[in-house]
């Protein structure tokens, strides 16, 4: 988002302009929900948490000083919230929802698969679905910090600089953790294939 447009939006948000809040949610709902879903692995939990993130943004907007971008600031809130939610969820297995609920609901709602490249044949569809489940499960087994960095970089396409700002880590640490996360994920997926 253009800096000037963002600054104007923040000013309106601080004035509690309802239309500005709607614009904010419309602009960031998809990246936030997708980020939370990939972090938690449960569609309903992710949706509920995404609502809480936007409520927190609404409440805390006065403390936003514009040092980072609005998106970075929102991701920071979301990543803190997701850590707390994961603690609250405890040791519940990752992505426990049966088929037909969770990520699949997105397909029902929007008339399309959750996979970005939708295979047309049923066997391809099933294969794509199984692969997605396997990757999602492997992501869920990563350490918290590794998962956070991997999701931000490889799924959300965030830059290393913004990941460093979101996590508060040095740039070098971000890169080395991402590398380790990818290697760990590769191992888990290899294990799954045997």
């Amino acid at each position: 988002m253009d800096t000037l447009v963002e600054r104007r939006l923040v000013r309106r948000l601080k004035a509690r302009d309802p239309r500005a809040f709607e614009m904010l949610v419309e602009r960031y709902q998809e990246p936030v929900l997708n980020f939370l879903y990939r972090m938690i692995g449960n569609r309903l939990e992710a949706e509920d948490l995404a609502q809480e993130v936007f409520i927190a943004v609404f409440k805390k907007i006065d403390s936003f000083r514009g040092e980072a971008s609005l998106q970075t600031w929102i991701y920071r809130i979301a990543s803190n919230d997701v850590k707390n939610r994961r603690k609250y969820m405890g040791r519940r297995p990752f992505d426990t929802l049966p088929p037909g609920i969770g990520a699949d609901r997105a397909a029902d709602d929007d008339g399309g698969s959750v996979m970005s490249t939708r295979p047309s044949r049923p066997d391809e569809l099933l294969e794509g679905y199984q692969m997605e489940r396997r990757i999602q499960r492997a992501i869920g087994e990563l350490e918290e910090e590794q998962r956070l960095i991997l999701v931000l970089r490889d799924i959300q396409n965030e830059t290393y600089d913004s990941i460093a700002e979101i996590t508060g880590l040095a740039l070098g640490t971000v890169k080395s953790r991402l590398h380790r996360a990818r290697l760990a994920l590769k191992e888990k997926l290899d294990i799954g294939m045997r």
């Binding site: 709902q29 998809e30 929900l33 997708n34 879903y37 990939r38 569609r43 992710a46 949706e47 995404a50 990520a103 997105a106 709602d109 929007d110 698969s113 959750v114 996979m115 970005s116 490249t117 692969m131 997605e132 990757i135 999602q136 992501i139 991997l150 490889d154 799924i155 396409n157 994920l185 997926l189």
Partner: peptide, 11 residues
């Protein structure tokens, strides 16, 4: 494979 994961759409 990770980058190709689909996007979840909000209701």
């Amino acid at each position: 494979g990770v980058s190709a994961l689909g996007r979840v759409k909000p209701p």
